[in-house]
Simulated assay, not measured.
Amino acid sequence: MEDPTEQSLWRPLHELLGRMDAEIGRIYTDREITGLKPTYVRELLQLHFRGPMTITELADALGRTHSALSQKVSAMRTAGLVRTVPGADARSKQVTLTAKSKKLVDLLAAEWRATEAAIAELEAELPYPMSQVVRDVEAALVRKSFHDRIAEKLGKQQ
């Protein structure tokens, strides 16, 4: 049997996004900011603009699962970017910005805007904008889910 991971239509997209995230990360490195990852910025800005939130509230605001946000909050807490305190009930935790991340908020908002402007510039150079690709893929997945497409292919193999 051959290794199926040697072929991938998906990998180039993941690698491209990884390279783009790494380039954003260089912005933080250039400014000697430690512990900050590009994947934390949206959460930090949400907490800044909306105020402290429970993990559930933050997950809902971002369209993520509680489990995924809980793991991310833990990593951001380790990096010194957020802190958690008991919430209104014993099962919830309130997430707040630390002094370290409060100092970064202006830069993070500016970087977000600059990143969006850079993406718009990049899209203008392309014959088919990335944002249109996303909309087209989403529309195709409304017609038939990714799960159903994979399950169908698995059914044909058995």
Rank of each mutant, 00 (worst) to 15 (best):
T54I: 02
R64K: 14
V95L: 02
T54H: 03
L108H: 06
T84C: 09
I119F: 09
E116K: 06
Q46D: 12
L45S: 09
V142G: 09
L141M: 12
Q94D: 10
G35C: 06
Y40L: 04
E111A: 13
M76S: 12
M53H: 09
V105T: 15
L62T: 09
L58F: 11
V134R: 04
P38K: 03
S145V: 04
A59N: 07
W112H: 11
K100A: 15
W112C: 04
R64T: 10
M53C: 13
Q46G: 01
V95S: 08
R42F: 07
G63M: 01
P38C: 06
G80P: 07
Q71E: 14
R64M: 11
R50I: 03
V142S: 06
L47M: 07
G87A: 07
A88R: 04
L36C: 08
L141P: 00
R135E: 15
A140C: 05
G80Y: 04
L141V: 03
G35K: 02
E116W: 01
K100F: 05
S67L: 08
R77G: 12
T84L: 00
V73H: 09
K37S: 12
Y40H: 15
P129C: 02
T84V: 11
V133Y: 00
L126R: 08
A117H: 06
W112G: 00
L126I: 01
Q132V: 07
K37F: 04
T96C: 10
R50G: 12
K100E: 14
R42K: 14
L36T: 10
A61F: 08
L107K: 02
K72I: 09
F49K: 05
K144Q: 14
T78C: 03
A99E: 15
R50L: 13
P129F: 02
T84H: 00
R113T: 13
V41S: 09
H66M: 03
T65V: 02
Q71D: 14
Y40S: 08
T98N: 05
L62D: 10
M76P: 14
W112N: 09
I55P: 00
A124Q: 07
A110H: 11
P127H: 06
L45F: 08
R91M: 07
P86A: 09
G51S: 10
L122K: 04
E125D: 08
R77K: 15
A117G: 00
T115A: 15
T65R: 05
A90Q: 08
M53L: 15
E123W: 02
S101V: 03
L104F: 05
L36S: 08
V134I: 15
K37V: 03
K102G: 11
W112A: 13
K37T: 10
T98F: 01
A59H: 06
Q46K: 11
S70N: 14
L58W: 05
M53W: 03
G51T: 11
Y128R: 05
L81K: 05
D106C: 01
I33D: 07
S131N: 05
L107G: 11
Q46A: 15
L45I: 15
M130E: 02
L45W: 06
I55N: 07
D136S: 05
R50S: 15
L107Y: 07
F49R: 12
K100N: 12
L104S: 09
E32R: 03
E138K: 12
L45D: 10
T56P: 03
R143F: 01
R77Q: 15
T39H: 06
D89A: 03
K103Y: 05
V133T: 13
T34S: 12
S92E: 08
L108M: 14
E123H: 01
D106L: 04
